[in-house]
Design a protein around this nucleic acid. Structure first.
Lengths: 146, 146
DNA sequence: TTGGATTAGTTGTTTAACTAACTATATGTC
DNA sequence: GACATATAGTTAGTTAAACAACTAATCCAA
């Protein structure tokens, strides 16, 4: 490395993910203040089911960047909360399809509004162009390593 | 919000931190392959002690964006590994100063090299300018919310 | 058709994060 | 000096992440 582009510590935030942690924490707090008792991780699963209900656990792994045991346990906890249910697929009996309950469907609009508000708060003073650059960089970082 | 700058889901990766998670996971794997048996979280504490030895636990909270219980337990585990030791401050007996052991000091160069390599891998195809933008955005996001 | 490889999901174990409630020391004000 | 307040750190409890090892169903190829 003749000219080390990435000096020590400079990119520490890439490794720690401090910014995304801060957003997640704030969103969690906003949920709590509105009496919504789910974790951000649980919300992130519901989020993808709101886009498309009946995904398999493997689909949820891909969508949320989590491994299979993590999804197994998140679905366990969402089932305990009666927000989703596992339905074994008839076509392929290895597969569980995950379906939203009616209460989960009702959570959608409020939590989406809170998520948008939180992102707007987080991105005060950031231009649309900067956001695009940032998203693109994060995507390439992810692709480089996955 | 007449023109919602941040459409639903567009910035989802900011919340999930998929990119930083991927970097952390890769770095962890690289550590393992070199027989270095510490977690990324433990490394992130050592990292700040390498910059300045003898920080208090509160200093480490601020530096690593973690809360106090998290640091208590990370220091517990680092003590078990004989990588650091707690030394109660004489001036203020509420404070523990955390000092690196000799083996911890020896981990420094190798792990730093691996971290730099990992970041270089992660940032293939990303220009220096894009990195600067990204860092700056992540910093502002963090500052907006902290 | 059978036997190996792949895929979907679960379980066990360790480490870590967050909240809340706690102890102990220090500070500052009347 | 005494009391309220703030600061540093710990403990307890729940949830989640990463890894390894596992079961069960499916696919595929000889």
């Amino acid at each position: 490395m003749s000219d080390n582009q990435f000096k020590r510590g400079e990119l520490y935030s890439f490794i720690t993910g401090a910014a995304s942690t801060a957003i997640a924490r704030r969103l969690q707090k906003n949920f709590k203040q509105h009496g919504i008792d789910i974790t951000i991780e649980q919300w992130s699963v519901l989020y993808h089911l709101w886009k498309q209900d009946g995904l398999s656990q493997q689909d949820l792994c891909n969508a949320t960047f989590r491994d299979k045991p993590s999804i197994t346990r998140l679905v366990d906890n969402l089932e305990k909360l009666r927000l989703v249910s596992r339905v074994p697929s008839k076509e392929d009996r290895r597969i569980n399809r995950i379906y939203l309950s009616e209460p989960a469907t009702r959570l959608r609009d409020l939590t989406m509004d809170l998520a948008n508000q939180t992102l707007n708060e987080a991105l005060v003073g950031v231009t649309g162009e900067e956001i695009e650059t940032c998203k693109s960089v994060l995507q390439r970082v992810y692709d480089n390593l996955k």
